[in-house]
Simulated scan of single mutants.
Amino acid sequence: MATVEAHHVFSTSVEQLLGRRVCYQKHKPGRYLSLERVPRGVFQIDSVNQFGSRVVLNDGVVVMENAPTVIERRGRIALLLSTGEELYFTVE
Rank of each mutant, 00 (worst) to 15 (best):
Y24Q: 02
E15N: 04
V55M: 05
V9A: 13
C23T: 14
F10A: 07
H27V: 03
D59Y: 09
D59E: 08
V14Q: 07
F10D: 05
V70A: 07
Q50A: 14
M64D: 01
D59F: 13
L18D: 01
R21T: 06
F51Y: 13
R21P: 00
R21Y: 01
R73A: 12
L87H: 04
E15Q: 06
G52D: 05
P68W: 01
E36H: 07
N66H: 15
V9L: 15
Q50L: 11
V61C: 01
N49R: 15
G84A: 01
S11W: 10
A2Y: 15
G84C: 01
L57F: 11
L18K: 03
V63C: 11
E72Y: 11
R31I: 14
G75H: 05
V4G: 11
E65A: 15
V91Y: 00
I71F: 12
P29R: 05
Q16E: 11
Q25M: 07
V38E: 02
S53W: 15
Y32L: 13
H8A: 09
S82G: 10
V42D: 08
G30A: 02
N49A: 14
V14D: 09
V63D: 03
P29C: 01
M1Q: 12
V56W: 05
Q25C: 07
F89H: 00
H7N: 13
T83S: 09
L87Q: 03
H27D: 02
S11H: 12
K26L: 02
A6G: 10
A78V: 09
L33E: 02
A67L: 05
G52S: 07
S82C: 11
R74E: 13
S34P: 03
F51L: 12
D46E: 14
S13E: 10
G75R: 00
R20N: 06
G52A: 07
K26I: 04
A2L: 14
Q50F: 13
P29T: 11
P68F: 02
D59L: 03
I71A: 10
L81H: 06
V22Q: 00
H27R: 05
A78S: 10
R73K: 10
E92Q: 13
T90L: 05
T83Q: 05
Y32G: 11
G75D: 04
V42N: 04
F43K: 02
V62W: 01
T12C: 05
S53C: 13
Q50K: 15
G84L: 00
K26S: 08
A2V: 15
T69P: 06
R20A: 08
V4P: 06
S11Q: 09
V22H: 00
D46N: 13
G84S: 01
V42K: 03
E72T: 11
I71P: 02
S53E: 13
T90A: 04
R40V: 06
D46C: 10
R54D: 12
I45H: 01
V55K: 08
V56A: 03
V91K: 01
R37V: 02
V91A: 01
L35Q: 02
T69Y: 10
N58F: 11
